[in-house]
Simulated assay, not measured.
Amino acid sequence: MAEPAATTVRSGCPGATHIFLVHGICHGGWCWYKVAARLRRLQPLAASRVVAPDLAASGIDDRRLREVPTFRDYTAPLLDALRSLPDGERAIVVGHSLGGLSVALAAEEFPDKVAAAVFLCAYMPDCMSPPGHVVLQGANRESQMDNEMKPQDGDGKLPASFMFGPQFTKQNVYQLCSKEDITLAKSLMRIGSVFLEDLQIMKPLSMHRYGSVRKVYIVCKQDRTLQEEFQRWMVSNNPVDEVKEIDCADHMAMLSAPDDIVQCIVDIVAKYS
């Protein structure tokens, strides 16, 4: 299983490139277990460290959603891990789904430590609009079916919450995954938040920081949650250095097509680190 977030990252290898795998809403580092295990076995990546952190109030992080009022609070474990990288060491940071916004924030905060920001069928903001804009565009394109959503509390202290419904999960998120992975997800998913209220009032990410980081978008063509058309719309609004495609991957590509994801990451490490 994926390891929990670490506030300090040490490799002992000057110039090493780390690989951070960032989960999406309602998930945790556990969803990367197939990809993380495969990457750790690859000899060309022996000098790298593969980290799949749990963001705040996710996975085995013991905080509850009410203790995580802002998107920055939610992303703090990733930001702390990047902050702790020794001088001269950088990371390939891969974000899935909502994790794309965490990767974007990390690139804004630490552009010198992010060798490449990788968006795996993920939300990718541009430098013109608040990060919440891309979330709103995505929400307008998808059916919510039996997903559960609760509005922000009256005092604004608890963010609006979200949980995937069983039917939406099976039909639109994990439709190409094994029954075992669906069972795993149902047992480990936690209530999360899109933090839309907070993301809408954030300033656009800057061109000289986030905009300067090299970016790769991995399009998953069988994704029914963030459909291919929307993924390509984001790329057209915020051109990237490279677009990769995976034909037979649903939204949970790290589970339905782990070998393809590993190959993409290996190629990216070789090219951008």
Results as ranks from 00 to 15, higher is better:
E108F: 06
V194T: 14
A117T: 07
C121H: 11
L120I: 02
V51Q: 09
A76Y: 01
P4K: 02
P77D: 03
V219F: 00
P69H: 06
A52I: 01
A117G: 15
P125D: 01
D126L: 02
E180N: 09
Y210R: 09
E67H: 11
E109T: 15
A139Q: 13
V216A: 04
I246G: 03
D87P: 11
F71N: 10
D250K: 05
D260F: 02
A56L: 03
C127R: 11
L196P: 11
A36F: 00
C248Y: 08
P258R: 03
R49H: 10
I261N: 04
I182P: 05
F162L: 04
V194M: 14
V216T: 04
K203F: 01
D54P: 10
Q231P: 08
G12N: 11
K271H: 10
L55V: 02
T8H: 15
I246Q: 00
L42P: 05
L158M: 15
I246K: 04
L101R: 06
R141T: 10
E108Q: 13
E148G: 04
V50K: 06
G192V: 09
V68N: 08
V134K: 08
I25C: 14
G95F: 01
Q171I: 13
M124C: 05
A47Q: 15
A249S: 12
Y33K: 09
G15Q: 12
G132P: 07
A52F: 03
L79W: 05
N238M: 10
V103S: 02
V235P: 08
L120H: 06
Q167M: 11
C264E: 08
Y272N: 09
Q175F: 07
A107V: 09
F195N: 06
V118G: 03
K170T: 14
T7G: 12
L98S: 03
Q175T: 06
G211Q: 11
V35R: 06
A5G: 13
